[in-house]
Design a protein around this nucleic acid. Structure first.
Lengths: 188, 188
DNA sequence: GTCTATACAGGGATAGAC
DNA sequence: GTCTATCCCTGTATAGAC
């Protein structure tokens, strides 16, 4: 994610993302970004009107790329349970492949800057909603409000990702078990 | 929580907590805290060595008080399922009774300041672990690693709390359904 | 214990040359 | 497009009087 460093603009975004992930927003000063990129502070303002705009642009692109990555890996068809597992694994791998991007998303979402910006996973809400609707129609999934069911999809996944980035090693069977547990929370 | 305003020290802590919850860490300057408390900036340093120490003290007391609140409401005995539901409701109400404290905890946890500080719910890990062990022994709960099961207890709860504070109104049956879904993720 | 006044550093942003 | 130099402001923290 955010791995095309061919333009100065992108290099600035990547540097800021990495700094926020490792040091936090407070430490991500214009001076730090300039140092990390090898550019002068003044140059940053030729590419972004200011720091807030930069942080927002990063978040938007992040959301976009996570969505596209997962989208590309999701093959239509298959059982409901398979679609469920595929979506889970898609999100899992997308974030795991770029821990800094994941941490950036977490921090941004908790910052006041996020404001009216939607959640990082909002692109998937439609997927999840479709899944739920099909499952309810088929009588396989509890007829609960979408908000309740969604609380058992992304949050546990995100929690396990955080632990993974903190050094916890998940085995393949742990992952499978987590998907199964998530499914059980949905299933009638 | 953090509602004893009889000492200056506590009033400073409460003011900082509220500011962080509403405006974020960046906007919670010493000047803002002084304004909110009616004290002079210099006075803050008679009670805390610096801002970081203040933020840390708030978080520690927060953890402590949430733990005690839930502890006080948990009656021993009853079925496993009942204990599960009681713990869930205990945490739910503890945080819901002080939204600012909840938001502070979330923001602090995502800030670099949290550093080696444990999660806000760490006090409950023993409770949850006991619950899981008893359940595994009784053959009622999946024999999965604690880390997997825990991912289906607090994270969905926290997610629903966030939505509640964002204005979402949960009905009583939504709450019951959420507890049931959480239990289903654990149960064999 | 609290206030006023102030020192000091650091950060965001701009001007203007190259 | 990038750099250097600089302005201005804000934020943390301290000194010292009351």
């Amino acid at each position: 994610m955010l791995d095309d460093l061919s333009t100065t603009r992108n290099r600035i975004m990547r540097a800021a993302l990495d700094l926020v992930a490792t040091e936090g927003f407070a430490a991500t000063t214009t001076a730090a970004i300039a140092r990390q990129t090898g550019l002068a502070e003044g140059t940053l303002y030729r590419h972004f009107p200011g720091k807030d705009a930069l942080f927002l642009a990063i978040y938007r692109q992040l959301k976009q790329e996570v969505f596209e990555t997962v989208q590309a890996k999701t093959v239509p068809g298959g059982s409901l349970r398979d679609r469920f597992g595929q979506l889970w694994m898609g999100v899992w791998h997308a974030y795991l492949s770029d821990p800094a991007a994941f941490t950036y998303g977490q921090r941004f979402a908790e910052s006041p800057l996020s404001g009216s910006e939607g959640a990082a996973h909002e692109g998937f809400h439609q997927h999840v909603t479709d899944l739920m609707q099909d499952g309810k129609d088929a009588g396989l999934i509890k007829p609960l409000p979408g908000a309740v069911l969604r609380a058992f999809f992304f949050p546990p996944l995100v929690s396990m990702l955080k632990q993974a980035l903190a050094g916890h090693v998940w085995s393949g069977s742990d992952i499978d078990a987590a998907i199964e547990a998530a499914w059980d929370s949905w299933a009638v």
